[in-house]
Write a protein that binds this DNA or RNA. Structure first.
Lengths: 343, 343
DNA sequence: CACCCGTGATAATTCGTATTAGCGCCTTGA
DNA sequence: TCAAGGCGCTAATACGAATTATCACGGGTG
């Protein structure tokens, strides 16, 4: 049909139809402005040639001339698909894909953005970020410099997960952790718990910091006792000892994978969960783990966050406007690791 | 840093460094051919300006001028991420992403390619297929017309999964079903099984047809009795009845989800698996199902297929060459649903 | 008769980068 | 002494589609 190496262009269509490239473009874009007039028979002739040849406009040339592409970039700091992170990322991507499909957009995964070292970077020597109309950032932590760069370059983007200012406010859609943690703390206090623990880093990125903050504020508000238990480099057994030494009756565990491990360890040594100790999990597992425990806690609306991020990005592209910042509510999950304080 | 709306171009860099746009391009592309010479101090000056301004080449313009993009398209006929199909597609995508990352390529997911109806089509009015250097096709069935079109348009692509000719040979990397099925049949015959059944459609796409063919040939080779049991619109119980009516002792089930259902149904009505009936599963579940049965069968090398597809596509882009067609071996899986024929 | 206006098209330019074909000057070799 | 080539760089052009600025033509008007 087509000679190899040569693709059909508007010029070719024009030649065949006996008109100019301009006319082909006008017909193709269905321009019916008052400014532009094309005789019905000419339009029909051009359309016929297009149909017969099966011509499709080159998206690249199009993008160069226009501004829009209908391509949304998706940047993740870790690989998207590997099983280790798939469980965590999957719901976000599900929402992103759904919404992109509805809007007729394609998704560009920046899998190549890897610097010499381990970590991915958005701006490498030949970054293809600007090929997309805008992009969605996904990842538990996001490079500060990358954020600042995106902002100063004026590249439209929305981060999934709240981000602190990076020289300027960052557009994001995040999970509203503080009220969710507060609700759990309130319920614990309501059931008599007075000595509560936050188990996890509580820092390092915005989301753990938000949870920690929610915990601190809620504990202060209900007048309970709150301790902070670090997890890095410690076994579940050691954590349990520290919790019992502090006479903690309700543990708010940042990472569900840890919550599962602690629960197992406790039951192994004869400690009843939730009889002797209540376990509250703050979110979704970011590490692959077989969750065979029915944890009480809350659900991060990951799919909705994905959808909303794309919607906000679309609005941003459409109208510009203010930097969108939204927090979506987390839904409480009734599990079986939470009970009144032992008497 | 940059004025809003205006982006830094090579022309800007050239102006600042006091050279021509050509020189900037040459420096940027690190051209050190004998043909092209640039004074070290000029090169340094240009590089400094580039560094200071943080200029990054516009990938769109680049693509227009060059031919390559380092972007690989991924086309799936169903959504990639939804949980219903995620379990099936995930390993392929894992392999694709791994390989793309190693090659420094980005992945373009054609999520927009949806016609008015339900099914996705590659070529819609404004298809962005040609934005990628080439693409990988993923899906249990692939539209015949799309394949033919890809071939005649000369768009480089590799299908994951064997495909019959579509006017011309189709480049693919598939799973080598016939020998895998044959191996299972051989083993069954070796353990005394004489009445075997193929449970599934055995048609509709290349992969079930290949399995069916493998089954037929192997059954004939070992001189056993083979029956074909259709599954569509029938309950596991009905299937069991048909199997027992035909005095089948080993059932080769196309779809593992069906194999699981049949096993459960059998055990519920007191039929021992594998004591009374052996179940052999032919591949990976394409429907979401909780596989709590340790099925005997084989493993489709999905991740490797993903990797290989990208590798073959890269070779295709590099050197052109012959249409690659490869079948990867399936590894047998020793489960606990296979035993000698009951005496 | 000069003028205007509506009609249907096109030539020229734009987008940002890559490539080709030189430019003028200087060195070398025969 | 004169052609051949080396040197460092640039003007011009290509890539394919969209947009802007015109243009030719004929019919009506004053």
């Amino acid at each position: 049909m087509t000679a190899p190496g040569r693709r059909l262009t508007q010029q070719d269509i024009a030649r065949i139809a006996g008109v100019s490239q301009t006319t082909v473009s006008l017909v193709l874009n269905n321009r019916t402005d008052a400014e532009v007039r094309i005789a019905p028979e000419t339009r029909e002739r051009v359309l016929r040639v297009i149909r017969e040849t099966g011509y499709v406009a080159d998206p690249i040339a199009r993008r160069l001339a226009e501004r829009r592409n209908r391509i949304l970039g998706v940047f993740t700091y870790e690989a998207v698909f590997p099983t280790a992170s798939a469980d965590f990322y999957h719901p976000f991507l599900l929402g992103i894909e759904e919404c992109a499909e509805e809007m007729g957009c394609d998704l560009l995964l920046f899998t190549s953005a890897r610097a010499a070292g381990e970590r991915r970077r958005i701006f490498n020597e030949d970054s293809r970020v600007r090929l997309a109309d805008g992009c969605v950032l996904l990842g538990r932590t996001v490079d500060r410099d990358d954020l600042a760069r995106l902002l100063t370059e004026g590249i439209p983007f929305v981060s999934i997960g709240r981000r602190d200012d990076a020289g300027a406010p960052v557009p994001y859609v995040g999970a509203d952790y503080p009220p969710a943690v507060r609700a759990l703390v309130d319920r614990a206090a309501g059931l008599g718990h007075r000595r509560l623990a936050y188990v996890g880093a509580g820092a390092g990125a915005e989301s753990p910091a938000d949870r920690m903050r929610g915990f601190r504020e809620a504990v202060a508000a209900v007048g309970a006792e709150g301790v902070h238990v670090q997890v890095t480099g410690r076994t579940p057994g050691e954590l349990l000892e520290e919790l019992s030494a502090a006479r903690v009756t309700a543990a708010f565990v940042e990472e569900p994978a840890d919550a599962v491990a602690i629960t197992h360890a406790a039951r192994e040594r004869g400690l009843a969960i939730p009889g002797d100790l209540s376990i509250l999990a703050l979110g979704a597992p970011t590490r692959p783990v077989h969750v065979d425990v029915d944890l009480t806690g809350f659900r991060i609306p990951r799919r909705e966050m994905g959808r909303r991020a794309v919607e906000l990005l679309a609005e941003l592209l459409e109208s510009g406007g203010e930097t969108p910042q939204e927090l979506l509510a987390c839904e409480l999950v009734e599990g079986s690791t939470f009970a009144p304080i032992p008497s």
